[in-house]
């Protein structure tokens, strides 16, 4: 593990039953680095980032996040989850809580922040994702793009050092994708460490420091975007890129 790396996966293996989803995965992420993970469906990219905040358990290898090793130790898992924010494909907002309550929930209960302070924080986060006027609505009253931006704000309210994005725009109507990507670009420019699983190659070219290509549970290729898109080494990568870029 190198000095300035904030996330380190070494030899990580994982099975779902008999199915080998992650095979000897090695990945080092430096502070403030922006990584875009792509690959065909079923290649293990979501599983990999879900292992980083232990929504999935890995069975072999080591995962170290911000100096904390992820093991069965529940205390470690809790402290890692406070460091790592996650945005899901299906938004997963809490439908029975208003937008503001969605965002203040964790600061109030996990960080024991006073309510007024948490609400102020929530408004700041909503400013960042550009929908402060929706604070008192319920998730069901918002569009998909707005919901995803609230989900981002909810994660940011815990002041994470690392943000994981699991196909954040895949469930969105086309006209709403941009508003979410814009927020993510702002975040990237603000210096957040980010791992993004996405098929939005335009976004990848704009913000990624490094592209990671996965197939059948392995990391097949890692490169800077310029090299990755223009001069990939592996045939699998070439095939994948030709399929998603030329449609």
């Amino acid at each position: 593990m190198s000095e300035d790396s904030i996330i380190s996966l070494q030899n990580v293996n994982k099975w779902f039953g008999d199915f080998h989803v992650l095979k000897d995965v090695d990945l080092e992420v430096k502070k403030k680095e922006r990584i875009v993970v792509c690959g065909p469906s079923g290649s293990g990219k979501s599983t990999m980032i879900r292992c980083i905040n232990r929504l999935e358990e890995h069975q072999e290898g080591t995962i170290i996040v911000d100096g904390i090793e992820l093991t069965g130790n529940l205390k470690n898992i809790d402290s890692v989850r406070k460091e790592v924010g996650m945005v899901f494909q299906q938004f997963n907002l809490f439908p029975h809580l208003s937008v503001k309550e969605n965002i203040t929930l964790a600061p109030i209960w996990v960080k024991k922040m006073p309510k007024a302070e948490a609400e102020e924080l929530a408004m700041q986060q909503l400013e960042i994702v550009k929908i402060p006027e929706q604070a008192d609505k319920y998730p069901g009253q918002l569009s998909g793009g707005q919901q995803q931006r609230v989900a981002i704000a909810r994660s940011l309210a815990m002041k994470p050092n690392i943000m994981l994005f699991d196909e954040p725009t895949s469930a969105l109507d086309p006209e709403m994708i941009k508003e979410v990507l814009d927020v993510m670009i702002d975040l990237a420019e603000g210096g957040m460490t980010m791992i993004v699983v996405t098929h939005e190659m335009g976004f990848a070219k704009t913000v990624a420091d490094r592209m990671v290509f996965m197939d059948e549970g392995r990391i097949v290729e890692q490169a800077v975007p310029d090299k990755f898109f223009n001069n990939p080494e592996s045939d699998r990568t070439k095939l994948f890129l030709s399929q998603i870029l030329n449609h």
Binding site: N53, L55, D78, R81, K82, V84, G85, M86, F88, Q90, N92, L93, F94, P95, H96, L105, A106, W109, V110, A151, R154, S155, M158
Partner: peptide, 25 residues
């Protein structure tokens, strides 16, 4: 399942997750 995952990912404990997110729904 996503409700549980979201609750866990923002750091809520088992009881906080159940009392604040899962049970009310």
């Amino acid at each position: 399942q996503g409700q549980y995952e979201a609750a866990r990912s923002i750091g809520l404990s088992y009881w906080q997750m159940n009392l604040k997110v899962v049970l009310p729904q």
